[in-house]
């Protein structure tokens, strides 16, 4: 696992593994959503996860941030064993809320439905967590927030409220809000699925910019154009398993799995 790796996309050398999912099992009642899923993502890597709805791709992403409990396996992210403590006998107990909260601060997450805080303006959406949770100084947090708003192309929206923004603008604010915590990994859960077609590219452009900047990203999306442009690896999930894991060229031109061929024939 420790052999040096280079990204076929950028030619950059990738760092050590930063997210390691090992035989993750997730069940909702008797419905098994993830079947021993294993996945390693290296620092600086951009991984796109595709698949039909119900294939488990969003659930996997949510498990990485421990927004969902898992029934089996382990997830190691940014040096934390996410959500659990394992004793010498191998028994798992869920960590208290406070500890999980601390673990999550190393990762940022962007949701399909944006989930901006409607009662706060854009600036306060972005500075809330750094100031209240990380104890950052208000002035410094604001400076950083304005820098991030610049980066996502919304320098003049600091005082606007979420209800005054378009979907694409809201999603870009949501990205800035996640970045404000200076995460080491960014998780994107279908970030463009709720957007009108003409707003998709403005969000994808920001994401491509992030990946160019070396951010480690795990992106659940149907946007295969983004996968081609920015991904180091593209995964296909089907029935709670990863059935394809390949660099974009191989994924699109010479997929190994029948499921991938079927998926591509429907989506392209």
């Amino acid at each position: 696992m420790e052999k040096p790796a280079t990204s076929p996309r950028s030619g950059r050398t990738l760092g050590p593994p930063i997210v390691i999912c090992d035989k993750v099992v997730k069940q909702f009642g008797s419905n098994v959503v993830l079947r021993e899923v294993s996945l390693t993502v290296r620092q600086g890597e951009v991984v796109v996860i595709a698949g039909r709805s119900g294939s488990g791709k969003s659930t996997l992403l949510r498990c990485i941030d421990h927004l969902e409990t898992i029934e089996g396996g382990t997830i190691n992210a940014c040096g934390h064993l996410m959500g659990y403590r394992v004793d010498r006998l191998g028994r798992r107990t869920e960590l208290p809320d406070r500890k999980v909260a601390r673990q999550r601060r190393d990762m940022g997450m962007v949701f399909q439905s944006f989930n901006l805080f409607p009662h706060l303006n854009v600036l306060h959406n972005i500075t809330l967590a750094p100031v209240r949770i990380s104890g950052e100084e208000a002035a410094e947090a604001e400076r950083h927030a304005r820098e991030l708003l610049d980066k996502v192309g919304l320098p003049d929206k600091a005082d606007a409220y979420p209800s005054q923004l378009s979907g694409g603008q809201q999603q870009r604010v949501a990205i800035a809000r996640a970045l404000a915590m200076r995460p080491r990994v960014m998780l994107f859960d279908e970030p463009t699925s709720a957007l009108d077609p003409e707003m998709i590219s403005e969000v994808l452009d920001v994401m491509i910019g992030l990946s160019d900047g070396g951010m480690t990203m795990i992106v659940v999306t149907h946007e295969m154009g983004f996968a081609r442009a920015a991904a180091d690896r593209v995964l296909l999930m089907h029935g709670g398993e990863i059935v394809e894991d390949a660099p974009p060229d191989a994924f699109f031109d010479a997929p190994e799995s029948e499921h991938t061929r079927l998926f591509l024939s429907k989506i392209l």
């Binding site: 941030d65 927004l67 809320d97 406070r98 909260a101 601390r102 999550r104 601060r105 990762m107 940022g108 997450m109 949701f111 439905s113 944006f114 989930n115 901006l116 805080f117 809330l128 967590a129 209240r132 949770i133 949501a174 809000r177 996640a178 915590m181 998780l187």
Partner: peptide, 23 residues
Amino acid sequence: VNKGQDDASRALGMTWAQRMRYV
């Protein structure tokens, strides 16, 4: 209150008390 608000505030690293108080 929309479930997404809880998701977003948890993902930012807020504890239960912080989620309640600020969001």
